[in-house]
Design a binder for these strands. Sequence first.
RNA 1: GCAGGGUUAGUGAAGCGGUCAAACACGGCAGACUGUAAAUCUGCUGGCAUAUGCCUUCGUAGGUUCGAAUCCUACACCCUGCA
Length: 352
Amino acid sequence: MNYFSKTGYKGNLTTRAGAVNTPTFMPDGTRGAVKSLTPEMVASTGVGVVLANTYHLHLQPGEDIVAELGGLHAFTKQALPLLTDSGGFQVFSLSKINKISEDGVTFKDPKTGDTIFLSPEKSIQIQITLGADMIVAFDDVVSLEDAERGRTTEAFERTHRWLERSLAEFQRLTRDMKAGERPLLFGVVQGGLDKNLRKQSLEIVQSLPVDGIAIGGLSVGESREEMHGMLEYLAPLYDTQRPHFLLGVGDPADIRFAVEHGIDMLDCVLPTRNARHGTAWVTGDKKMHLTNEKYKADSSVIDPDCDCTTCRTGYSRGFLRHQFKVSEPLAGTLVSIHNIRYLQRICESYRK
RNA sequence: GCAGGGUUAGUGAAGCGGUCAAACACGGCAGACUGUAAAUCUGCUGGCAUAUGCCUUCGUAGGUUCGAAUCCUACACCCUGCA
């Protein structure tokens, strides 16, 4: 029943900022903060790692400023181990404003007019300068539409070439670091919904001296069956000596499925975005729309079985609904705490 | 008292003879959101059936017209000038 015990990472994840129990859900603090939460609030949810994003922090305020202010931990006042995403996802999510070449990707921000260039080397440099404890190789993520146009193979191949470049740059920059000071590098597996490509990609990534394996290119709009099918297919192929990080997943049912199929780490914007939009998860993985009229005079907490700070403090559904209706940011904050805790509890339930 | 302007769905506000159950905004209701261009976006929002349909609405009461939220008359209330 507990597939995790058979395929999951065997040891605790050890980073230079401390050990992390797995499986673990990691909230996204894209621009250096988990939206609407203080580091104390984030810590109260029991999470072990917080993410930040290379693309966003490079654009603003710039990694040099972050470094000047003491690095990501000091800058964000976040003591928990930090993981930066490479900016590879922005190749997908900002595909309308970027241009991909073998060398790297050029982004043109339509708002600021800024042009930024990201390459495997550049992404690793930024992440090292930011001071993250775990970093991710710069990959080429394809959208479903692009996959239909046959870009999957191109992105798959490029991701591996870029991984070798990322790894070389990583080794160059960390050469003089002591073992305990060196951040961990994750390579990314691509291949779209093609099992053959996925298998090859996993073998290539696992053949390299990376510290962890990330599964990318899922949860980009494919069906749940397709995503689960791929996770099920990859599960027996994992090297259990290294942690497996499923990028961008998120939904309680997907987290359960992923963890039961050998995934050790997951990150997602869903708990915080849904929270800001008024949706909480409750026992049974059900969604609760707190803005619904039926909660107007509801004195119960979001989920009586939840041990998050929001539920334990006793904030009522009626109060939360009211704060949402009057657009008070506090509502999103309180529900973010609840949702992150909900996902973390799922992960904790799989730990031995 | 005289002259002029106004009264439109929960609110604000378009419309000024037919294609008007009536733009748009807000509010209301419901939903979506998966490595954050997302405190965002989508649908519905007179009533009843809900697929095309029917019924009652545009201050009130009459009238003109094949046809009125739109034109005319009277009345009610509000605003601005002059008394």
